[in-house]
């Protein structure tokens, strides 16, 4: 048992090297900023979900390219065991299921198929709060990426903050600012980590095993 625990802790530390380049922090920082700015655009009367989806797709593309051409040649490659791959798959399934669920709810909302009124608004807020919190926490647990808990809280709190403050401020800006600030924070931390990573892991050319 002790042996198993020790191996797991080393495996976890090796797994966390995936995040030490800061690219994932930068990716999710931008993700939060895109969701925030998308709401801002919607608030100004331009309903453009395409902007959000395109933004995320471009972001994923840039992230994968940087991982492949900047991080990997400096860090090397590693293939993790079945346990880790299973955890990663679970996180992916939950993320996809959450996307599908969100798309269905969005479709219902656009076609005015959801119940309207003060009470149903509150209920949907609570569901949304729990949805974001639970989904991001579970993904955070499976990927061992602690920032997911933070993203979950920010995403979950953004709408309720608007709901509570809107009658007084007549604006949805507090929730948006919350997401933009949180995103900026993650982006800055990611950039610092990325610079440190580039300095501590210079590109080493073709380093390979040479029989001696």
């Amino acid at each position: 048992m002790d042996n198993k625990t020790k191996t797991s802790s080393i495996e976890l530390r090796l797994w966390l090297t995936n995040y030490e380049d800061g690219l994932t922090d930068m990716f999710f920082g931008c993700f939060l900023m895109i969701t925030g700015s998308n709401q801002l655009i919607t608030w100004f009367g331009h309903d453009v979900p395409v902007y959000f989806n395109l933004g995320i797709l471009v972001l994923i593309g840039i992230y994968l390219l940087l991982k492949k051409y900047v991080a990997q040649p400096r860090l090397g490659t590693v293939k993790f065991g079945t346990r880790r791959r299973r955890k990663r798959m679970k996180a992916l399934i939950i993320a996809v299921a959450a996307q599908v669920f969100t798309a269905i709810v969005f479709y219902f909302a656009l076609n005015h198929l959801l119940p309207q009124g003060e009470r149903s608004g509150l209920i949907s807020l609570i569901i949304e709060f729990l949805f974001f919190l639970i989904v991001f926490s579970v993904i955070g647990y499976y990927t061992d990426y602690k920032w997911f808990y933070f993203i979950g809280v920010i995403m979950a709190v953004a709408w309720p903050v608007n709901y509570i403050l809107q009658p007084y401020l007549h604006s949805v800006l507090p929730g948006i600012i919350l997401q933009l600030d949180a995103g900026s924070l993650m982006l800055i931390i990611g950039m610092i980590r990325f610079i440190v990573f580039l300095r501590t892991h210079p590109k080493q050319g073709d380093l390979n095993y040479e029989r001696q």
């Binding site: 191996t7 080393i10 495996e11 090796l14 090297t17 040649p73 860090l75 090397g76 490659t77 590693v78 293939k79 993790f80 065991g81 079945t82 892991h201 080493q204 380093l207 390979n208 095993y209």
Partner: peptide, 13 residues
């Protein structure tokens, strides 16, 4: 702890 790793990764770690 892993299934496989390349030379550079082992060297870094």
């Amino acid at each position: 702890s892993v299934e496989s790793a390349d030379f550079l990764f082992i060297m870094n770690q």
